[in-house]
Design a protein around this nucleic acid. Structure first.
Lengths: 352, 352
DNA sequence: TGAAACATTCGAAACGATACAGAATGCTTT
DNA sequence: AAAGCATTCTGTATCGTTTCGAATGTTTCA
């Protein structure tokens, strides 16, 4: 049983180096405390089968020598990556969205052992591709993603595979999953109302990216409802949406505003696009606040300074990032998905 | 020696599951090819001591079953993380900088086995803190960071520890390290020149974040040189810089432009700040292009539409991200730091 | 023919962590 | 006094990979 090579190994083991240069491991602590690594491992995670005195001693040593668990070791053994992956498309023109989202998420993660990795994809590629990659290689414990669609294959896939995730935006698939969303229906509804209050009667909206993305529908719903209630006329812009290049938005806008039945009120759901709209409106020789009123959502606060006449509503994307991060983390911790769904509401006062 | 439990273990080992559900490992391939894992490992990395026929066979199987090395395994064994960490401060007001940087970097990394993680810190905290964390925990193979200072402790620390990194911006420490920088000196120089060409004589600049950051000095150098050559008057804004909140920049600007000796030409190094400047200028009752001319660098293209009279120069941050990513990767591969230093030059034509 | 050289392949050990099944120890119970 | 039971600790196997040293078989050379 205890052959000589066993002894040799032991003597090799005894030569634990406690040199300052090397990074401490459980073995280091075990050696210093005169305990086995198993005990140390458990003591550090407050396991019930370890004596209180031992726990204290081990935890003190760990703190003193600045022990931090080796992530590769944990990951290899347990499969837990301690990584949250933010999947986003790399050409979103929504100004300030990406950075604020990143900041919001990392604000939350920095209080935890989790790291944030960014996995981008381009709109030309299959949005499923990065998702599949993450799942197949097990490279994250949780996923945050945006551009959520009513019937989103990513949501279906991740749910089937039991991977925790949270979406920015909602689905309409009857699958309960964590999300955070801005109430775009209320935004569109209130926006139109505030235009009506200014006497505007012919109102248009620059729509969300494409009907494929859910919030497009919410905007549309709120818009139509408000138009109907107000007995106004709703116009749809053809040929442009929030994903269109700003240059094309500007040009198309000029066309529309010089055309026969131009709107006198406009709702826009992105600050960047709003700037292009304004450029187009002014190129047509019209004045914001006089010939036409513009309400826009913005995620960065330059719009109001751009043209003080624009009615703006601030969407706090950083807050969304925080909410989403918290949601995935709690989902990972086993919290029911239905408890991890939240909405941000537009503040009616901002839209007056 | 070969006790009964030894046999049990072996028989357990023989039952390599090639079920579809589980992720394939080297063992899976080894079993399928009737080889040892060692051979498979080597065959996959084209080691010279493996026969060509074997290599082909192994690589074919690997491709067929979609084998991807387990990152935790590799990382634990070799210490290689396959991670590049982008360290950035989480309140940079430079519009579009963060997102474009992230996109540029991931564009390059997506062609490699590297992942991108984002490690933010707030300006109130010690910028060394995230760097130390990464080095101490060995959580990245390379680092990309910005807000580079002339005498940057992070550069010193990373160089001493032999961790590959690339900076956005230069140092002045006599340490050769990879960087990518925009030639801010040329930008300031040309900006002033273009203002002079418009007949402006009293020129001010909204400075970089603080003299602590290197590009502040470059801007200053180019500015002074150009002012001197043109025999003009240079004014320094006091109390505001590019890090100041946009609201304060606006207010201070209004003050300055209604004051006794207001400038008639302004150089600004950030698009976001430029918008605040414009707001202040207009609040003072002045018109851009008439009473005063404004040249600004921008990393997102809204400025020109904001006020067509602004003279803009586009800094391609996405390109910077690509350059930085390539630089760290090549540095990791052992390329000499001096070969990994690049500059982007402002195009004189843009500033006319 | 035997030894040396080479070409291939392999087993075992290691990286750092956790899970599992024991094993000492002291205390109660019968 | 023996058995039972908590309490507290330990050794060993394991995750997937790479690397070291060695083993196998095949050529080559004297």
């Amino acid at each position: 049983m205890k052959a000589k090579d066993d002894n040799q190994r032991r003597s090799g083991e005894a030569a634990v180096e406690v040199t300052e240069g090397e990074r401490p491991t459980l073995k280091t602590i075990a050696f210093m405390a005169g305990l086995g690594v198993t005990t140390v491992s458990r003591a550090l995670k407050d396991a019930p089968e370890i004596g209180q005195a031992t726990k204290n001693r081990v935890q003190l040593i760990a703190k003193q020598i600045g022990y931090r668990p080796n992530r590769a070791g944990v990951r290899l053994r347990t499969g837990k990556t301690n990584v949250i992956s933010l999947v986003l498309n790399a050409q979103s023109s929504i100004m300030g969205l990406t950075s604020n989202m990143v900041y919001g998420i990392s604000e939350v993660l920095s209080q935890t052992p989790y790291h944030l990795t960014v996995t981008p994809y381009s709109l030309e590629n299959d949005p499923m591709q990065p998702i599949r990659y993450i799942v197949e290689t097990g490279s994250a414990d949780g996923i945050i993603m945006s551009r959520t669609e009513p019937d989103d294959p990513r949501v279906r896939y991740l749910t089937e595979h039991g991977i925790p995730f949270a979406t920015h935006g909602r689905t309409e698939m009857g699958i309960e999953h964590p999300f955070h969303d801005f109430d775009n229906e209320a935004f569109a509804y209130l926006s139109v109302k505030s235009l009506l209050a200014r006497g505007r009667r012919k109102i248009a909206m620059l729509a969300g990216p494409s009907p494929a993305v859910t919030y497009y529908r919410h905007l549309d719903r709120g818009f139509s409802r408000s138009i109907e209630e107000g007995g106004a006329v709703g116009v749809t812009f053809s040929g442009i949406d929030v994903d269109t290049s700003l240059g094309r938005i500007r040009d198309r806008m000029e066309e529309i505003m010089t055309g026969p039945n131009r709107p006198d009120g406009i709702v826009c759901c992105s600050g960047g696009a709003a700037i292009a709209l304004v450029a187009g409106i002014e190129a047509a020789g019209l004045k914001i606040g006089e010939d036409v009123d513009l309400v826009s959502k913005q995620s960065t606060d330059v719009l109001k300074w751009f043209r003080p006449q624009i009615i703006v509503f601030n969407e706090d994307v950083r807050h969304a990032g925080r909410e989403l991060a918290r949601a995935v983390l709690r989902r990972i911790a086993g919290v029911d998905a239905r408890e991890l769904q939240s909405l941000s509401y537009p503040d009616e006062h901002e839209l007056r």
